[in-house]
Amino acid sequence: MKIYLAGPEVFLPDAQEIGAAKKAVCAEYGLEGLFPLDGGLDLSGLTQRQAGLAIYDANIALIEAADGCIANVTPFRGPSLDPGTAYEIGHMRGLGKPVFAYSNDVRLFAARTRAFCGVSGARDEEGLLIEDFGLTDNLMIDGAAVCSGSPILCEDKEGVLDDLAAFRACAARAADILLETRT
């Protein structure tokens, strides 16, 4: 079973090494990890725009080749997950494929949003309601994971993007569910 590895790790300086480590964990559980940087793209000679769209196409091909997705929804540059990861989750669910997710931040979405906005009430400084359903992230993200058979798994790692403890637990859960449905 192939599993797409969504998350903001692609932005880290050691992205290739983290991707390799995640793929090795997947292999321990009988899964083939597909990391976004696996495309082997030659971006030379392309404009920035062309390169960005080529990366998009390569990632969509990996998503569509996968049987499911493990997504790192640890907050990234704000109180919520990386927007590219959110898109990948939605695309995967739109294909009817399962999404398994984890976060290295145990705080709930509402608490993180209030802290980010510097408020304590139900609304932010612009008067906009703060989503508060007792979930890990936006309700659509949690819903994608729950509908796939597993809530978002969380570890208290202070939001560190590259810690693999929660990823390992998520990979084990994904393998249990995916490999069980295969038989």
Rank of each mutant, 00 (worst) to 15 (best):
T85Q: 06
K2T: 10
L31Y: 11
I70T: 10
V73T: 13
Y4A: 07
G143Y: 01
I3L: 14
Y29S: 01
C147H: 10
M92R: 03
R77I: 04
Q50L: 12
L53F: 14
T47K: 08
A166G: 07
D67K: 05
A21V: 00
K2S: 13
G33S: 10
I63W: 09
N59I: 09
G33L: 12
L62D: 01
S150R: 05
F35Q: 02
A175M: 03
E131S: 11
P151C: 01
A86G: 15
M140I: 06
D42S: 10
C117M: 15
N72G: 04
R77Y: 08
F76A: 02
A6Q: 06
F116T: 08
R173C: 12
L81R: 01
A165G: 03
G30P: 00
Q48I: 12
D176L: 09
F109L: 02
A166S: 14
I177Y: 04
T47G: 10
Q16C: 00
G159W: 07
A111Y: 00
I18H: 11
S44I: 02
D163Y: 13
L108A: 02
G134V: 07
H91S: 00
Y102G: 03
D163S: 14
G96C: 06
A115Y: 00
F109R: 02
F76Q: 08
N59H: 05
Y56K: 11
I18P: 00
G149Q: 09
I130F: 03
I3S: 08
F133S: 08
C170V: 02
K2R: 15
A101Y: 04
L12D: 06
V146M: 13
L46T: 10
Y29F: 15
A110G: 03
V10W: 03
V25N: 04
R114H: 03
R168E: 14
Q16E: 15
V99I: 13
C154L: 07
E32K: 12
A51C: 05
D105N: 09
P79C: 13
R112V: 03
E28T: 13
E155M: 09
Y87A: 13
R107S: 09
F76G: 03
R93M: 11
L135P: 03
E17L: 12
C26T: 09
I60F: 13
L43H: 05
L5I: 11
L81C: 15
S148R: 09
N104K: 05
